[in-house]
Design a protein around this nucleic acid. Structure first.
Lengths: 208, 208
DNA sequence: TGTGTAAGTAAGTGACTACCTGCATTGTCG
DNA sequence: CGACAATGCAGGTAGTCACTTACTTACACA
């Protein structure tokens, strides 16, 4: 009993490995354990099938949500970064393929930009709240800071496989390390701030 | 008088728009203003042609070189970042295509990773030198900091076209803004440090 | 038992693909 | 002028692609 979902899953898998042009209907059918013609009867065309498969994927995101009111920035941002990098790593193949086909199939890439857009808006909002709370000792623009953290995480997720030596080690600590650097950039002190009420003037000393 | 270079340039252009599978010999020949068969007589096969075209491209990098001994970090890093982002933006299409085809054609992607690898090594070395000079007021690992700046720049160059609203504005100021944030992260003060000799203990105050 | 629906099989269509053969044309150089 | 190499042109081969037609099988339900 092969249903639409089997075919959609197979299509996503084949697309992740071979891209649009390489995703032949025969390959998808084989991967789904279904006769090729079933695909056309169910979805009409290869393009419609892949469009639906992509749309399906962008729905199942499951990102960590940042609190509206920051409490423990280090902890909250680290959790968020880790969930974000995990999400990207799981989908790195399909993301690379989709990005490579923006010029030829912009509609399909369009819906792929949904997740990062939401993530960016969420992170920007959080950083702006931090700033409003007066817990940032450095000047910064939330959007720039957000783009910096997300950019680092994105590049790591996309590129580490090909060039492991240019990214921080170990892989599992990368997201916290980027997060720490960002917090330093905007001037949030290291310790968790359960001591929110009695904020102290910080003095930084030179490192060895 | 159509020569190899015309064909190579056309091949690179077509590849940037359509990827490997989409770069048909007919399309390349048309783009080069050359008969299709000339391609086979000159290069033997489509794959050989594209391989040579890619190899050609990675040679013509032209990155800014960071000084072995940092003098004015803000200025030097900003120049470097701007040349790096310019380089990536000029090649964003071809980079996206190449990344999308790592799984299917790893040899071709291999040589594409040359430029970022060199850039990363160079930047790491520079940041380590800065640290050794004792001009960084924050703890950081050079490789992580380098990955962060390069990642931000890379993501900007790859993604701004598709999602302009998640990146800092204006586009032209993005590289300096990322650079500034990184310098804040590692604790390098804003002013140019021609005053290297009399390094002062810095005190940061809370921002409004 | 009959009927409708979803799936499979077999065969084929026209377009496109990488690449080849044979032959005519052109420009260069001695 | 003649030799030669590079190029163009017409045509073709064998394969793949998305997609179709015509027909068969399996099962659900009334």
């Amino acid at each position: 009993m092969h249903n639409r979902d089997d075919i959609l899953a197979a299509a996503a898998e084949v697309f992740a490995q071979h891209g649009f042009r390489g995703s032949t209907t025969r390959r998808i059918a084989d991967a789904a354990g279904v006769n090729e013609i079933t695909i056309f009867r169910q979805f009409g065309s290869k393009e419609a099938l892949l469009r639906e498969a992509m749309h399906n994927l962008t729905q199942s995101a499951g990102l960590e949500v940042l609190p509206a009111v920051p409490a423990d920035p280090d902890r909250e941002l680290t959790l968020w970064s880790e969930s974000f990098i995990k999400h990207l790593r799981l989908r790195s193949s399909i993301i690379r393929k989709t990005m490579g086909e923006i010029e030829e199939r912009p509609e399909m890439s369009e819906c792929a930009s949904d997740v990062p857009r939401r993530a960016s808006a969420d992170l920007c909002h959080y950083l702006a709240a931090l700033k409003r709370q007066g817990r940032t000792a450095q000047k910064f623009e939330p959007r720039t800071a957000a783009a910096m953290l997300m950019g680092a995480i994105f590049s790591d997720a996309m590129g580490r496989e090909m060039m492991p030596d240019v990214f921080p080690q170990p892989e599992a600590k990368a997201a916290p390390m980027y997060t720490r650097l960002l917090l330093q950039a905007i001037g949030v002190e290291n310790g968790s701030s359960r001591t929110t009420s009695k904020q102290t003037r910080r003095t930084k000393q030179l490192s060895a």
